[in-house]
Computed example of a mutant assay.
Amino acid sequence: MYRVLAPIDSDEPRTRAQIEAIRDLPEAAESVRVDLLHVHEEIDAPGDEAGTSYIRELNERIEDLQGTPDTVGIAVEELENAGIEAEIHDITGEPVSAILEVAEEFDVDAIVVGTRSQTPVGKVVFGSVAQGVIIDSDRPVLVATP
């Protein structure tokens, strides 16, 4: 069994590109299992009258408050239609670190990330989750573009 981690955000074209890349893997339906991961970013705010415990408590509940984006449901449906087994996971944290931690925890064989078009300056200023995963991962990373 070949295990793939696909971090899914709320961008539908990027999600569809990731699913297409997974479907194109050799013998995908027979031997691939996909872990779909949505990372909820932590709230990082200075303490105020409510105190830092309020922020900590909010971060613990953020998955319930934010919900899972529709793109995760789209990914599950597309994979099921292709006969590929998928499981959904939610986690709260910094996206690159969370993705790499889950990849290690599940001992995935590859990570399939989606990218968006950015100028070189935009990448430097705003960063890129896909870029961070590519640079920091010790596992193969397949990059899918819409």
Rank of each mutant, 00 (worst) to 15 (best):
A130T: 06
D64H: 10
S117I: 12
V102C: 08
D90H: 15
V96M: 04
A75D: 09
G67N: 06
V76A: 11
E94N: 10
V133T: 04
D138F: 09
L79Y: 09
I134G: 07
T68P: 06
I84W: 05
V121P: 01
T92K: 10
L142I: 15
S97E: 13
S137H: 04
S53E: 14
A103M: 03
A82Q: 10
I74L: 14
G127F: 00
D90R: 14
E63K: 14
V108I: 05
G127P: 02
H89Y: 15
V76M: 12
D70M: 03
D70F: 00
L79M: 13
V133A: 01
V121Q: 13
E78D: 15
P69N: 06
E85M: 09
R139L: 12
E77D: 15
V72Q: 09
L100W: 08
F106S: 07
Q131E: 11
V124R: 10
A110E: 04
E57I: 01
L65H: 06
G132I: 06
I134R: 11
D90F: 12
S117H: 14
L65D: 05
N81A: 15
I74N: 07
I135G: 05
P95Q: 00
V133D: 00
V72D: 08
T68H: 08
V129S: 04
A75F: 05
L65C: 04
G83W: 10
L65S: 03
Q131R: 03
Q118W: 01
Q118E: 11
G93Y: 01
E101I: 05
G122Y: 11
P95T: 00
G93V: 01
P120C: 02
R56F: 04
V141C: 08
Y54W: 14
K123M: 06
N81V: 09
I99Y: 07
E80Q: 13
Q66Y: 06
L100G: 01
I88Q: 10
R56S: 10
T71H: 05
E85N: 10
H89G: 04
E63Y: 08
A75P: 14
S97I: 11
V108P: 02
G127L: 02
T119I: 09
A82K: 08
I111P: 04
R139D: 00
V143M: 12
E94I: 05
R116E: 14
I62S: 07
I134W: 02
V121M: 14
G127W: 03
P95A: 01
E104I: 02
L79G: 13
E57R: 07
S128D: 03
R139H: 11
G127I: 02
T92V: 15
L79W: 07
L79P: 07
D107M: 01
T68Q: 08
G127V: 01
A82R: 08
Y54P: 03
D138T: 12
A86G: 04
E63T: 13
Q131V: 03
S97G: 11
E80K: 11
E104P: 05
N59L: 07
V96G: 10
V133I: 10
E104M: 02
E104H: 08
A103G: 07
I91W: 03
A103H: 00
P140V: 15
T68M: 08
L142Q: 14
R56T: 12
V76H: 06
E78R: 14
I55G: 05
T71N: 06
A75I: 10
L65E: 12
A86K: 03
E104G: 14
I91N: 13
